[in-house]
Design a binder for these strands. Structure first.
Length: 563
RNA sequence: GGGGUCGUAGGGUAGUGGAUAUCCUGUCAGGUUCCGGACCUGAUAACCUGGGUUCGAAUCCCGGCGACUCCGCCA
């Protein structure tokens, strides 16, 4: 509802500026502590009109016409506060906000903004996900949810790097080392991969086998393809299980080898030869890209393709199927992503938008799958759920075992997801196990707790026979904390539309909303209020519950009704 | 050597030109006759440094210092 308010303010301000004959570029509206919305337009006008901004602000306010549409307006007042123009919402806005929430989210179909293909996670299928991948997956998934809610048709891809040397090493390894039967699939693959790497260190002949295998795979040797398929699919099944536990799903798994065997990679190389600035270094092909010193190798001496070339083919294919392409990449791919963009420009393909996130490191140093130095996502989830269970058990000994486990799962995974997404992606994180397991901080459990409190009030109301009805009188909600809560509730749509590629802003809003609810909870008794007020407050609690659970859903966090 | 990102209270973090710089944690002091204390209130304490642009800079530009990272016919 806040968006509607903002639009009306824009409308009204525009008219006033026109009447007062000011030429402006931007209305410079912003949220403010001093008002519900505030405009700084007087500052920029001050220069052009050589008058103090305070005078201009007052002048604009004098030209405002707020009385006419008294029936439908959302604005109560607008005043000049020095150089600022401060605008405030009215009771109708508060009433309308609650009403809209009760009606439910408007169907996304009405405001289709186009199709987006977003790629995230895309971990190599040579072992389980570690905490670095976790950050990628969670940022990506929240992005998906935000964009869907903002009205886009979103398709999620996992790009499977099945042509890398690592996979060949793992596949080769299976010929000498058996999979552990009692392990989760992706972990079993990692064991083989790590053991195979050790074999390489001991015996260089093994490396020749690996290279032979890679050539055969690229050439499309059927027997080799079957061997690959076994390993890659085994690993992916394990990875998918981990992702599912985190509440994450991909629509499509795209294997990079498809682009080689389908001929798309060759087409890309041919086209680059014609359109690009190409150099031959022996028989390898180097592509010179504008503004990047380092040439990009697009073909090896032996004629085989490279990761980047295959990625170009993949991006061309994606780009034909949607309006926007978004890639969630780790910081180490930044140069690659620039090269990719430049090369795509040469091919006249839509350039993707990148969400680049900084690394997660351990207090002991950086991660390495090959060296076996990583924290597996599964291990982390296991521990955080255990930790959550201890908390639940301590506080809710009254519940039965199944219920406690269910809540622990929601709280644990929620805390993990929130922890990963609350920080801006371009911030480096040093992962601290104890810190992540410390559930008491103001993360997901804090928000979930507010939701549970709301549910608890509603349940108690039902037991006492109070009905949650639509004929409440919203004008009875006069307390400051009530009004603040309603205003916060009104901003979900606004936050979603303004934080498209910044998932941490949604996390921030969720926390603020929970804070507002807790303040209301403290200040305003619901069940013990007089009948009229009680009805209005019950309606407010009901709305708060809806929006809390909504925003948690955008974060991919579940909303337990009790905890 | 070249490029990139980051530098905000003791630690972590929000804020990309505008009003008294956000929140967590830490430390200290408080709060429940009332719907769940995983809650709430108060105190403490910060924009790396030097220039520049601007009426106005944590925010933009340039230099310095520091941290991280990328620069392979790997992926």
């Amino acid at each position: 509802m806040f968006l509607e308010f903002k639009e009306e303010v824009e409308q009204v301000l525009k008219e006033a500026l026109k009447k007062a004959s000011y030429e402006y570029k931007e209305l410079e509206l912003e949220e403010s502590e001093h008002a519900d919305i505030s405009s700084r337009v007087a500052f920029s006008l001050a220069r052009a009109y050589k008058k103090p901004p305070e005078i201009i602000a007052a002048d604009i306010v004098n030209h405002l016409n707020l009385e006419i549409p008294a029936e439908n307006t959302l604005i109560s007042d607008a005043v000049a506060a020095g150089p600022y123009i401060n605008v405030y919402v009215n009771d109708f806005f508060l009433h309308k906000t609650l009403q809209k929430i009760k009606e439910g989210i408007e169907p996304a179909a009405e405001k289709k903004k186009g199709k987006i293909i977003i790629e995230h996670t895309s971990a190599n299928p040579d072992g389980p996900l570690h905490i670095g991948h976790l950050r990628n997956a969670i940022i990506g998934d929240v992005l998906v949810r935000v964009l869907k809610r903002a009205g886009y048709d979103v398709e999620t891809h996992y790009y499977v790097n099945d042509m890398g040397r690592q996979i060949a090493v793992a596949v080769c390894g299976t010929e000498r080392i058996a999979f552990a039967a009692n392990k989760k699939a992706d972990h079993a693959v990692a064991d083989v991969y790590i053991a195979a790497n050790r074999l390489i260190e001991e015996n260089s002949d093994f490396l020749k086998d690996v290279e032979k295998l890679m050539r055969e795979y690229e050439a499309g040797d059927e027997a080799v393809m079957r061997k690959y398929e076994v390993v890659v699919k085994k690993c992916l099944s394990g990875i998918q299980a981990s992702l599912q536990r985190l509440n994450i799903q991909h629509d499509l798994f795209v294997w990079e080898s498809e682009f080689v065997r389908g001929g798309a990679v060759e087409e890309v190389m041919e086209e680059l030869k014609q359109k690009g600035n190409i150099k031959f270094d022996g028989s390898a092909l180097l592509l010179q890209l504008e503004g990047i010193e380092k040439e990009l190798v697009i073909q090896r001496t032996d004629g085989t393709s490279l990761y980047t070339t295959r990625d170009l083919a993949y991006h061309r294919w994606k780009s034909d199927r949607c309006d926007r392409v978004i890639d969630v990449f780790g910081k180490d791919h930044e140069l690659v992503s620039q090269q990719l963009s430049k090369a795509l420009e040469i091919l006249r393909v839509k350039v993707p938008e990148f969400v680049i996130f900084e690394f997660v490191s351990l207090p002991t140093g950086s991660l390495s799958t090959r060296a076996g130095r990583y924290i597996a996502a599964d291990e982390l989830m296991e521990k955080i759920e255990e930790r959550a269970y201890e908390e639940v058990d301590k506080r809710r000994g009254d519940l039965d075992e199944g219920k406690k486990l269910e809540i622990a799962k929601k709280v644990g995974i929620g805390a993990l997801r929130y922890d990963m997404v609350k920080v801006s992606p371009d911030k480096h994180i040093t992962f601290d196990f104890d810190d992540a397991l410390d559930i008491e901080k103001k993360g997901a459990p804090f928000i979930q707790y507010s939701h549970a409190r709301a549910c608890s009030i509603l349940m108690a109301a039902e037991e006492r026979g109070y009905v949650i009805a639509d004929d409440y009188d919203a004008s009875l909600l006069r307390e400051e904390s009530e009004k603040e809560l309603i205003k916060k509730l009104s901003k979900l749509g606004y936050v979603i539309s303004s934080s498209e590629l910044k998932p941490h802003l949604v996390a921030k809003y969720a926390r603020e909303l929970a804070e507002s609810f807790n303040l209301f909870y403290k200040d305003c008794p619901v069940l013990n209020a007089d009948a009229g007020l009680r009805k209005a407050r019950l309606a407010l609690v009901d709305c708060a519950k809806t929006v809390l659970s909504d925003v948690l859903d955008v974060l991919g966090v579940e909303s337990p009704e009790e905890m």
